[in-house]
């Protein structure tokens, strides 16, 4: 699956997401991590059907996702929900929080009357830990954490099967973030939701996900079980990303930071996209883009060096980052 954007000015194409193959299993939570500009938000919008892929296809429950117009798309919203990154931008400042949620229930035909819609809204708000009294407030009258909860309530009131959460905790204070994480975990467990969580925060993603996909410049470089990827990353970029997490210990071993900065999506290096910054880059990485290949432990990694390791050494080889 790919999603390209025409650059403004009409010269060149920005490859926001470039040839990503992945599947999300019913009931699982997939975390997508990467730094700004890696294409994770674009991937999220395409996965939820809000944007069409430039190439490739998204199949949902066996059928391709409908295009953005028409009744089929509206019907698909009933099952697939995308929760935006900025609660304050995603909520209409002139509607109360309760009205947002009630409106959602009505639009999708889940409430025959205004009273029923209000009742459903109150239940959905209670579900995300918002007091009934808060439903009468306008978005700007809520705290950041309450807004995030309201946004969740709006999507969950119609009982979707699949939810894409884009940076659900990024604007929140630490203690509020912990509460929202706890809430998402609880909602997931109770409703058997299938979830994709997009975040730059690896710790948040690890706590909430079954599997993690690490993205770099529009491609998935590593995907596997959450704890495996987090505690023993294999791809050199994943290794560096996790090593860059700051431990709550002044005496933690110092790792030299990854040098340079990622190129932009409009100017992708040939061969392996990570090779200009990669400590393990060798000749093949400069010429050939490595495919996402399975390792013996079940995860998939797109790296020539890791592939060579697995071919050479008996299992388990893995990288130096395993110590982190």
């Amino acid at each position: 699956m790919s999603r390209h954007y025409r650059a403004r000015g009409g010269r060149g194409t920005v490859h926001a997401v470039d040839g990503v193959d992945l599947s999300v299993v019913h009931g699982e939570t997939l975390g997508v991590v990467g730094e700004s500009g890696c294409g994770k938000s674009t991937l999220g919008r395409v996965l939820s059907g809000l944007e069409p892929p430039t190439a490739g296809q998204i199949r949902y429950g066996g059928a391709p996702l409908p295009g953005k117009d028409g009744a089929a798309f509206r019907a698909s919203r009933r099952r697939i929900q995308y929760v935006f990154q900025h609660p304050l931008l995603a909520l209409n400042p002139r509607l109360t929080v309760g009205a947002h949620v009630a409106e959602m229930a009505r639009v999708h035909g889940l409430a025959a009357s205004a009273t029923e819609a209000r009742r459903k809204a109150a239940a959905a708000l209670a579900d995300v830990g918002l007091d009934a009294a808060l439903g009468a407030r306008y978005p700007h009258q809520l705290s950041g954490g309450q807004r995030q909860r309201a946004l969740l309530a709006r999507s969950l009131v119609i009982d979707p099967e699949f939810v894409v959460l884009d940076e659900p905790t990024s604007a929140l204070d630490l203690s509020v973030q912990a509460q929202v994480i706890e809430l998402i975990g609880r909602l997931k467990a109770r409703r058997a939701l299938t979830v994709v969580i997009i975040s730059h925060d690896l710790r948040v993603v690890r706590v909430l996900s079954d599997r993690i996909a690490v993205m770099y410049l529009g491609v998935v470089v590593e995907i596997g079980a959450a704890d495996q990827v987090y505690h023993a990353p294999a791809h050199p970029y994943a290794v560096a990303l996790i090593a860059a997490l700051l431990r709550l210990d002044p005496d933690a071993p110092r790792v030299p930071p990854l040098e340079g900065e990622p190129a932009s999506g409009g100017d992708i290096p040939p061969g392996c996209r990570f090779h200009p910054r990669c400590p393990r880059a060798a000749a093949p990485g400069r010429a050939l883009e490595p495919p996402l290949a399975p390792l013996p432990d079940g995860r998939q990694v797109a790296c020539h060096a890791v592939a060579a390791d697995t071919a050479r050494a008996p299992w388990p080889p893995l990288s130096a980052g395993a110590a982190a």
């Binding site: 705290s143 630490l174 973030q177 509460q179 994480i181 975990g185 704890d227 709550l248």
Partner: peptide
């Protein structure tokens, strides 16, 4: 103590003891 407990843990799924909302 509560703030430190709000940092997502390195292992397991649950926070130790997040602070209650203000």
């Amino acid at each position: 103590l509560g703030l430190l407990a709000s940092v997502p843990p390195e292992h397991g799924r649950a926070h130790r003891a997040p602070l209650p909302p203000a």
